[in-house]
Design a protein around this nucleic acid. Structure first.
Lengths: 333, 333
DNA sequence: ATGAAAGCGCTAACAG
DNA sequence: CTGTTAGCGCTTTCAT
């Protein structure tokens, strides 16, 4: 057993090949400017030693890495699909590459990953961060940051109009004759969750509905199923879930329990993910302009990166709309 | 208009704050070890100049970045979900962080992203790469690489047993009384696609079924729908799709066209993605040990990274199994 | 075509 | 607590 041997440097190769380090460097970077024979000797020596260009040195003085990081709370969540695409589109437009970082729903992991990534990127988009405000500000001190789905004063943010979307959803439910709504809450650390519940209460109050809240639950199908269990206690005719994944969970669990959707109870989701129209019944949901959000985020970020002494940092608020499908129907009153 | 001004260095800050560069460094890295007042002055100066720690310098001498890259042909594809989780698990175990890179189904983008990322990571997992073999080998010369879902001689690979899986699927169909199978092909650049079609032919021949192939199609729901259109020409009782997404597309399009699944035609997918059990009818599919693949890949990679003079490079072949659900049924013969 | 030497921006080791 | 002095591994002048 030897333990990890120190990786060979360019100097080791130089020595082995009997040339100067600078020549080795050239041999790799500008093969044309070096004697074919010498180049060959160098290549051979390099291969022999298993030489690899050091992790961070090469670009050391280039200064620009042309990369930005997009940090997601959970890559696995289809919610991010379009956001990612939007971000990539904006990045490509400017010749940048997007590095994806997964926080695995943990503020801790997010911090750690960020710490490692930070130094290699020119800017960072925090999508639905699970970190606390101060941690985010700390990051922002190191690199230009733009926050998605959350508002922090003095930091550039891009959010959807949760309030308007929720309003539309509740109106829809009211029009169908429902007299009370239950909100199945998502993660506590989620800024959006707080906004949605708040918005639902407001809308319900104004429209004369009764509002109730259960949760929090994990923002995944299983979480929705758990919500459904709690739901059954008490007369529920309409539920709005934190997101589509949960809504799907609710529908499935409800159906399994013999409750018909939408005849017995209506279900509304949030986000309009791809699977929303795949399930049966197809999900009525509040659609966020996902692609546009990703795009706007990176656009803004790049502007800041280019040194734009940040002007006003009013959060960019993108509109959302209600997509009515089959999971909502007449309420019994 | 000024153009991007050269970014301020740690020295600029030091000068502005009237301290030594090392002190500035400390102020950022170990805030405790520096006089509060001095730290404050430094922070102020840094903020004033808009100073940010240089992209690649910080870890410069650490040598190890503790990061590996996982390159995906399409992050958006749920197929990768468990692979990602597996990779992260193995990485975490070794104190590494996984950087996700999306090739957006393009060999070109993959190359470019890789070029930028490469220097910052210690190793690379290429999952379902869209690059040509030589390009992959070129990357492997720069960093330890391990290839997923594809076999390249002399490079460490991790693949699933496509052959066995397909065999099981065809047997299943045969047992149900089907006399012919159609394969709806995926992307041409896909190594797995070639393997699957080949395996289907082999199995069909041995079991006395007729095999047909249509495609290629994009490996997404829309692609499956397009496949279904072609399917309708000719008497088809059983189809195996390149992956679950396509299979779902096939089912939906078929249903829309009045063809019942599985009564009229049976559909089998590949991968057993999350949505497979969500759709109606639930999808019969060949399940790959996704999590295990991601895990094994990173494990191996890390071993190579630690300098293990690569021994035998026999591809690691993980077993797959058939998950029978509702999309397959009795064939009319 | 090649070598010597001077950095790149930052951190660590060692004195004060 | 803070300044000085060496590098980190590689690239880039500038000679030769």
């Amino acid at each position: 057993m030897q333990g990890p041997v120190k990786a060979p440097t360019i100097y080791d190769v130089a020595r082995a090949a009997g040339v100067a380090a600078s020549t080795v460097s050239r041999a790799f970077a500008r093969p044309g400017r070096v004697n074919a024979a010498t180049a060959e000797r160098i290549r051979r020596a390099a291969a022999e030693l298993g030489y690899r260009t050091g992790p961070l040195a090469r670009a050391h003085d280039a200064g620009r890495t042309s990369m930005i990081a997009l940090v997601l709370s959970d890559v696995t969540n289809p919610f991010y699909n379009e956001i990612i695409r939007g971000a990539q589109a904006a990045a490509a437009e400017a010749g940048y590459t997007v590095l994806l970082t997964d926080a695995q729903e943990s503020g801790e992991r997010e911090r750690e990953a960020l710490q490692r990534t930070m130094s290699t990127v020119e800017g960072i988009v925090l999508a639905t961060s699970r970190m606390a405000d101060p941690a985010i500000r700390a990051v922002a001190r190191q690199r230009p940051v733009i926050v998605l789905n959350r508002v922090l004063t003095d930091l550039p943010c891009v959010v959807t109009d949760n309030r308007g979307g929720m309003r539309r959803a509740v109106e829809h439910l009211a029009e169908l004759g429902h007299r009370r709504v239950t909100y199945a809450a998502g993660p506590q650390a989620s800024w959006a969750d707080a906004m949605r519940w708040w918005a639902l209460r407001e809308a319900a109050a104004e429209l004369g509905l009764q509002a109730r809240r259960i949760g929090p639950f994990a923002p995944v199908v299983a979480g929705g199923a758990r919500a459904a269990a709690e739901l059954c206690r008490g007369p529920v005719t309409a539920v709005v879930a934190y997101n589509d994944l949960m809504a799907i969970g609710v529908i499935r669990a409800l159906s399994a329990a013999g409750v018909r959707v939408p005849e017995d109870t209506s279900v509304v989701g949030f986000d309009n993910i791809f699977a929303a129209e795949l399930v049966t019944p197809a999900l009525t949901t509040v659609a966020a302009p996902l692609h546009a959000m990703g795009f706007a985020a990176v656009r803004n970020l790049l502007a800041h990166t280019r040194g734009a002494r940040t002007g006003s940092n009013e959060p960019v608020r993108l509109p959302s709309r209600l997509v009515v499908r089959a999971s909502t129907g007449r309420g019994s009153g």
